[in-house]
Design a protein around this nucleic acid. Structure first.
Length: 489
RNA sequence: GUCCCCUUCGUCUAGGCCGGUCUAGGACAUCUCCCUUUCACGGAGACGACACGGGUUCAAAUCCCGUAGGGGACGCCA
């Protein structure tokens, strides 16, 4: 199979003009898994040729988010390899070299058209129901004409000449054969006024120079592919194979954007999603293992990841399913690991954790993690274990008032029993409940427990009491009971 | 507008290349029941789809054509 005739090299080529988008992360992940599956190389290349919009801040954020997701690259920034530099801004001489070659072949020419002129042409074409494209006005300018235009102060861009008339065909690993009529393309700009290359030129040169074997990218690039193929063919470069991944859509079937809520990886991290959950979910958007497995760790994903199983229709990003999966990871990972992940969320929620012991925090996480699906829900759920946050909420108060006499009796008895209980582990808790049941008329088991719950946690709902009370300990329980009692009298 | 791509439950998808085994399977969500001192978790079940129209065939979710709908591209952005 031609897939294996060369070393597998793939790349992720983000431009640092924004944060790492959920779609970009998925594309990166597919490249990463593909490389891992075939024991190939995953290259990270920063496409920072847009000087106006690229920032170091975005670059840093993208690298950070990729790292958080665990999508590690083998070559790229911070990991030099033999095909660097990995910043397009540092590869200008390379593009100039290829531009010279194109000039020697007379395949490029300077274009002096202004933005206004181009827009007029575009509108005119649109009006005539034609595909808007550059018609080649500057194609056959004489030397004198060029000089004259430059004397006016016009700075030219460089356009690539398209002479082909035969359809450009290529085989897409996901979509099959794609054919495009080159006459609708128009001579396109490959180099800006300042001499820097444009995307189509820089990308194809780098893909070829970096010996990329498979370009796995978003479907928005399908229409760029014929241009890149033409460029590569003219330059005598060996093309990679292409695989265009469908894009991720918002629930309303439009392109996922800010107005639909969180779109960047960083935002999901802040909301308390686990990288392994996001990775698992993203991998399943547009790919499946061919059987009914869904919960898949990275090793398992890489082992089974093949392009043949990629889906070509676009997928809608369903945060509900992501949440479910995240909850699964929160519940099924080791308690220690989850506590570690949760600590920052506890802190930012305003819980005092500095002087708390790890085993105590672990037991809290273990008790509350069943009811959450993101890490940032753990703060509100764990709050009841922190004495300084104790208070009766409205429905708790109402409940107590409604059952005032019974509540008083239960609490008095409970407090007395607690006073005689030195330690409060689960065993003692059971014993204590048995004694309580004897001393208080417990025909209504529900009231017995609910009163205790409300008095100790201040809430009507929560984890099981046999988990809560041992974690709190005797002193804390009694303190809370006293507070509740005084609220009742 | 033009070109390219896409179309199975509300959503992610299996099946489609090699037509019958598909009264279309799984998962999320929703609903019901069970577990249970509460809320969750967990367990069991229910609801729910081959976009439409032609054709080929004994037989079509699966092959062919058309229509409709959706998306992408058409930049001195990537």
């Amino acid at each position: 199979m031609s897939l294996f005739q060369q070393p597998i090299r793939v790349r992720m080529a983000p431009s640092p003009t924004g944060f790492l988008h959920i779609g970009g992360a998925r594309t990166a992940l597919f490249n990463y898994l593909f490389a891992k599956h075939y024991k190939g190389t995953f290259v990270l290349r920063i496409e920072d040729t847009d000087k106006e919009r690229s920032t170091k801040g975005y670059e840093k954020a993208i690298i950070e988010d990729l790292g958080w997701l665990g999508v590690e690259w083998d070559e790229g920034p911070l990991k030099e390899g033999s095909y660097g530099p990995y910043y397009q801004s540092q590869r200008i001489p390379t593009y100039q070299k290829y531009l010279k070659k194109l000039e020697a072949l007379s395949k490029v020419y300077p274009c002096y058209c202004t933005a206004e002129e181009l827009e007029t042409e575009r509108q005119d074409l649109l009006k005539r129901h034609k595909t808007p494209r550059y018609l080649g006005k500057c194609r056959n300018l004489t030397q004198q004409e060029r000089k004259a235009l430059e004397a006016q102060g016009r700075v030219p861009v460089i356009r690539f000449k398209i002479d082909e008339t035969e359809p450009i065909q290529f085989h897409d690993l996901i979509r099959g054969d794609i054919s495009v009529d080159p006459t609708i393309l128009g001579d396109f700009v490959i180099s800006k006024g300042d001499g820097w290359p444009l995307y189509n030129f820089a990308a194809v040169v780098d893909d070829c120079e970096m010996k990329i074997s498979h370009v796995i990218r978003g479907e928005e690039h399908i229409s760029n592919t014929p241009r890149q193929i033409l460029l590569a063919k003219t330059l005598g470069l060996t093309l990679p194979q292409y695989a265009h991944v469908s894009i991720i859509l918002a629930p309303d079937r439009s392109k996922l954007s800010k107005r639909h809520g969180a779109t960047s990886v960083g935002e999901y991290r802040k909301m308390g999603f686990l990288p392994q959950a996001l990775k698992n979910y993203l991998a399943l958007l547009g790919w499946n293992p061919g059987d009914e497995r869904e919960m898949m760790g990275e090793e398992e994903l890489a082992k089974d990841f093949v392009i043949e199983r990629m889906v070509k229709s676009p997928a809608i990003f369903d945060v509900e399913k992501l949440k479910w999966m995240n909850g699964m990871y929160i519940r099924n990972s080791s308690v220690e690991a989850m506590t570690k992940e949760t600590l920052p969320f506890l802190e930012s929620y305003g819980l005092e954790i500095q002087n708390k012991k790890m085993p105590w925090l672990n037991s809290i996480i273990e008790t509350v993690r069943g009811s959450v699906d993101t890490l940032d829900q753990i703060g509100p759920a764990a709050e009841l274990f922190f004495d300084e946050k104790f208070s009766l909420n409205a429905e708790a108060k109402t409940y107590l008032v409604q059952n005032k006499d019974k509540a008083k009796e239960i609490l008095k008895t409970l407090d007395d029993l607690l006073a005689k209980t030195p330690l409060l582990e689960k065993e003692e808790f059971q014993k204590l409940q048995a004694e309580l049941k004897e001393k208080v008329d417990a025909s209504d088991k529900k009231i017995l427990f609910q009163v205790q719950r409300v008095a100790v946690t201040g809430r009507l709902k929560g984890p099981e009491m046999n988990m809560i009370m041992p974690i709190l300990g005797v002193d804390s329980c009694r303190k809370r009971i006293h507070i509740t009692q005084s609220a009742l009298s």
